[in-house]
Amino acid sequence: MIVQEITTIGLSKAGDDKLDALKESGVFAEKMDGFRFAVALALAQGVIPPELPDRSPFLNVGSLDRDHTLRDAVEMLMPEQLRDTTPYRLIERLADWGVSELDAQSKAGEIDFAALFDQVAAKVSS
């Protein structure tokens, strides 16, 4: 089965609402920044997120990943997961997971970015 690559990145409806809340609360200046950070967090954590339950269009792929950095990172770090999907479909899932994780931390008090970076450093070192 050939899966067609998407041209518009999306999030689940719940993920989009959470990203809106993170922007409104000042965690991120722009939703695009939060989206990118969420992808990086999910990649660093090594999660394999499930399919999106629903999909709300968010942003054109060319605007989000102009230089293909996100696509290249996913292709390099998650080749096994790309057997049944495309890079940008996987990026949507990674972002949705990351946004949910950031939202949960935000609701629990405050996002500890230093602790997140320490977790990533510990995983990279091992």
Rank of each mutant, 00 (worst) to 15 (best):
P57A: 07
G62H: 07
M76S: 13
L90A: 12
A121I: 00
L77P: 02
E30D: 10
K107A: 14
D118Q: 11
I91E: 07
E51Q: 13
I6Q: 06
K107W: 01
D65V: 01
R89Y: 04
L43A: 08
L64K: 03
F28W: 11
V39T: 05
E51H: 07
A114E: 10
E30V: 02
V47F: 08
Q45R: 06
D112T: 01
L116D: 08
S56D: 11
D20K: 12
K107V: 10
F37D: 01
I48D: 10
D84H: 10
D67W: 09
L116R: 08
R89G: 08
L52F: 13
S126F: 08
A29P: 00
L59F: 09
Q4V: 10
A14L: 15
P87A: 08
R89S: 15
D20V: 03
S56C: 06
P57K: 03
L43K: 05
L52V: 13
G34Y: 03
A42R: 01
L102Q: 03
V61K: 15
A29G: 10
E101V: 13
L77K: 06
D17Q: 15
T85R: 08
G10P: 09
Q81H: 09
D72I: 01
D112R: 06
P49H: 05
H68N: 12
D103P: 00
G34L: 04
A38Y: 07
N60T: 02
R93S: 11
K107F: 00
D112M: 02
K13R: 14
D112Q: 06
L94F: 14
E92Q: 15
Q45M: 14
A108K: 07
F58N: 03
F58G: 06
D17K: 14
V99G: 04
R83Q: 05
G26D: 03
D118S: 09
M78D: 11
L94A: 09
M78A: 14
A73T: 04
I91M: 09
S63T: 12
D103Y: 13
V74S: 02
L59P: 01
D84E: 08
S106T: 00
P53K: 13
E92H: 12
I9A: 15
D96Y: 14
D16P: 00
F58A: 06
A114P: 00
E110D: 08
D54L: 01
I111Y: 02
A38Q: 05
A38L: 07
K13P: 05
A14Q: 15
L82T: 02
P87M: 00
E24V: 04
F28D: 04
A38T: 02
Q45N: 12
L41R: 03
V27A: 10
L43R: 03
R66A: 15
A115T: 02
D20C: 10
E30M: 13
D96Q: 10
D17T: 13
A40G: 07
